[in-house]
Design a protein around this nucleic acid. Sequence first.
DNA 1: CTTTGTGCAAACGATTTGCAGGATG
DNA 2: CATCCTGCAAATCGTTTGCACAAAG
Lengths: 147, 147
Amino acid sequence: MHEDLAVDSQKDIIVQVLKEKGLRVTPQRFAVYANLLSRQDHPTVDQLLHDLNQEFPVSSQATIYTSLQALQTAGLVREVLLEPGVTRYDANVDRHHHFRCRCCGEIEDISWTTFEPLKIDNVREGLHAEGYEVTIYGVCDRCQPSA
Amino acid sequence: MHEDLAVDSQKDIIVQVLKEKGLRVTPQRFAVYANLLSRQDHPTVDQLLHDLNQEFPVSSQATIYTSLQALQTAGLVREVLLEPGVTRYDANVDRHHHFRCRCCGEIEDISWTTFEPLKIDNVREGLHAEGYEVTIYGVCDRCQPSA
DNA sequence: CTTTGTGCAAACGATTTGCAGGATG
DNA sequence: CATCCTGCAAATCGTTTGCACAAAG
């Protein structure tokens, strides 16, 4: 019961967020966003499509693409580009860094507060810097033995 | 004369570097690498193809791709991924950061010494961090007025 | 009821691959 | 001379688009 309530209220929150951003709430869009919010990794479109159709077949590939674009325009979702030809998506819109394992390719979020803030104001005369992000490369826990 | 000598010696250096890395020195490979070394920006394959065939038509698209792959495997060239679906190449293999203009998309190298070194050793228990890189977002000089 | 989203299939663009001929070491 | 590279065209893969129908507000 508690769980159902919690799940329901979470649904309501997501619906509300979508509406606030002026997005129509469709089952597909909801599913894409909810799924992205629920996971820690940064799936590709194909992974999303596969996982979503696992639970409840409500999405074509094209719809995932357009849903993601809408969510991105609304500022609810971000692209993560760390491998050529692979676009990943991230529902964590707060500032954060990334770690990428050179063995398995997995990408992990790294808390923004891990580092002292960098002074990007005077990087170069004339440049108007607005933000930044650190990408860390290395080997993750699981790949450690095999590295 | 001085110029010719300088150009010749530069050619020799490039040839030497390629050989040291165990790469056969072909006109195409040479042209791709020399061109990348000579420029400050980070061209795509199409830009490279266009620019190279401007001076001296020695390259098909497929060859540019395979040349870049060979150069990359040899550690002479790097991919720069900051826009979806766009792979850029960079002959600057030394550690450095990047600045990306959100108006024109231009990417500029930022000196490694711009920032104090970040401590990436203890980012998270179990993670074996090997390196990092900062990407700065903002507006470049030329886009300043229109921003 | 008007507007916008969905899903299919076709179109598209970037990258890869197979293969025959050619250049490199 | 053995090996590897080039260049073409076809194949592939991710993403976008056009359109008829359906759903949302």
